[in-house]
Design a protein around this nucleic acid. Structure first.
Lengths: 335, 335
DNA sequence: ATGAAAGCGCTAACAA
DNA sequence: TTGTTAGCGCTTTCAT
């Protein structure tokens, strides 16, 4: 049995409107009544009902966040940034996992929409996520990390192209000539852009990119492992490998350990997605670090701006964040 | 501009009650009208409003899930299990992070309660989480992984005591006599129970547990690293270490790598919380594995049972899951 | 089988 | 400053 405003009003001997007034704090209420009402709320252990409030106001104070993989610390770190920002304004975050499956994604978005979230943060399962649907539904949204192809609306992403290019240039600068890449899924923006950056840097240095040095994974440990084994087994194996996300790097390291390929002595490795674990590997991993937390905050900030905007302000477009190459012990000049 | 049942009713030329009837499917509706109504819904791209439904029905179809660390794959794996189970019944999960901070936990629970979630899954920040509060509020809840001290209600946990004991016995069986433990925070049930299990097994084997071999961490990488360094630096260092969660194990491995202590040649290591990453470390980690996904599912199942129960059924109490020791390459007999 | 109408708990005009 | 009241969009008796 839970009490409502009516109970509080009765106990305090006032009207429910006055109770509402002290709750919202937007109307002036005499000290006298305010005290009586607060006492009554206390006595009844009253807690306002967000559901009723939401129905009345047409907004829920909840935003949805959709990510491809909750077990990947990269995405949950983004979530922490987003939540941090949300909490400052009393917003809650509803986190949904898609496993990178467009069908599940579709379902999750439907659920979010049904619950009338005030906005959606979205890292899409594949590039063809129909953001038109969101537009049609008139719900504010911001894409982050994985953007649909051709999308020009509100978004937050790493400058993946430049990030990969910088990492590649670093390897070239070290003296490597046989450089391979384990690229991510090519149906998703970071996967595509990082491969482009790699190619760009290689070409700029007049390095031919041999096709057998380009392996396409799917961001999973297993695919990193597979691609790693294939690269190692090549007649003329690479002396350096750029691995395009944290999980694939893990698989790659296992492949190298199994085959007793010393890192960085025989093969240098640069991973993407720096995070707690990277520095605790042996060797400590050289990585392309993303300002993950900040990106999460920014995405939420843009979303809240949209939600609070008078619907006029034009789209801020996609904000690019710079990466930072963190050099540790997994890279060295070739022998 | 979003359409409501009224719009659908008008377009189909029926009353809103009939529209509601086809939506809920609980009342019979003639084929004739059903078709007209479905057409109208289609035409208007109508989607029922969960918020209004929730207010009317007094239930939201949302359950809250509160965990200490979203960036730890162990907890998010639990979440996946829980969500899997929830989705089968059309329930959504609202995930909240506490950073192990009782204050944040308190706040998150308040938010969940304000949003009138139908139930709460909770892994507590510290042992004194006041579950009485939840009881008072009459909201169904189930604790998982981290249980408050003295809690006897609905819960799901690993048999942590036996899990640690088994790991310890395994090390003893290998011939180790100088065995250390990096225990978890002692304000939380798994931290306590694992240390107890360790002590129990050691005593059963008539092994004195030297106090300098017992280090208390806080489940963070950093604490694992610190404790690891301290153990290694001992005049008579241990030949085997039991590390009580995944993150601390990571820190420990770094400490050993830095000090060039070969594993398992000089020191054997057993970690807790098996997961994708464990098998990809070098050496591949021997770990105490938990049926994480299944535990998440079970916790949600128990919660849904409570939610759907006629409030009569007595508490199922706490369900214990068995662990499994997965032997890989980080353990060997002492030299 | 269908419809009319009463609320669920709250906010926000509008009146007093 | 306070109270009255009309809904928000839906489900659910209760009539018809």
């Amino acid at each position: 049995m839970t009490f409502t405003m009516k109970d509080v009003a009765r106990l305090a001997g006032v009207s429910i409107a006055t109770v509402s007034a002290v709750l919202t704090g937007k109307k002036p209420v005499s000290k006298e009544l305010r005290a009586r009402i607060e006492d009554a709320m206390q006595a009844l252990d009253y807690h306002p009902d967000q559901v009723a409030r939401s129905l009345k106001k047409g907004s829920t104070n909840v935003v949805g966040m959709v990510i491809p993989d909750v077990t990947n610390p990269f995405f949950t770190e983004l979530m922490r940034g987003a939540e941090e920002e949300a909490r400052r304004t009393g917003m809650s975050v509803m986190l949904c996992n898609t496993d990178g499956d467009p069908e599940i994604e579709h379902h999750q978005i439907n659920t979010l929409l049904a619950h009338r979230v005030d906005g959606i943060l979205l890292s899409c399962a594949d590039s063809f996520t129909p953001w038109e649907r969101l537009e049609r539904r008139k719900v504010p949204f911001v894409f982050f990390d994985r953007l649909p192809v051709g999308y020009k609306g509100a978004g937050v992403a790493l400058d993946n192209r430049e990030a990969a290019a910088e990492a590649t240039r670093f390897l070239i600068g070290l003296g490597h000539r046989r450089i391979a890449i384990i690229a991510g899924a090519q149906n998703v923006s970071p996967g595509i852009a990082r491969l482009e950056g790699f190619r760009e840097a290689a070409e700029a240095a007049h390095l031919a990119v041999r096709t057998q040095y380009v392996r396409i994974g799917d961001f999973s440990i297993e695919s990193g492992y597979q691609c790693g084994r294939e690269l190692i087994a090549l007649p003329s194996p690479p002396t350096a490998i750029l691995s395009c996300n944290n999980k694939m790097t893990l698989g790659l390291m296992r492949a190298m350990a199994e085959e007793k390929v010393p890192c960085p002595d025989s093969v240098s490795v640069i991973g993407f997605d720096d995070f707690e674990w990277s520095a605790n590997f042996s060797p400590r991993l050289t990585t392309v670090s993303q300002p993950t937390r900040a990106m999460g905050r920014k995405a939420m900030e843009m979303l809240l701006d949209q939600i609070n905007a008078a619907a006029d302000a034009g789209s801020p477009g996609t904000v690019m964040f710079p990466s930072q190459l963190i050099v540790r012990d997994s890279t060295a000049p070739p022998r």
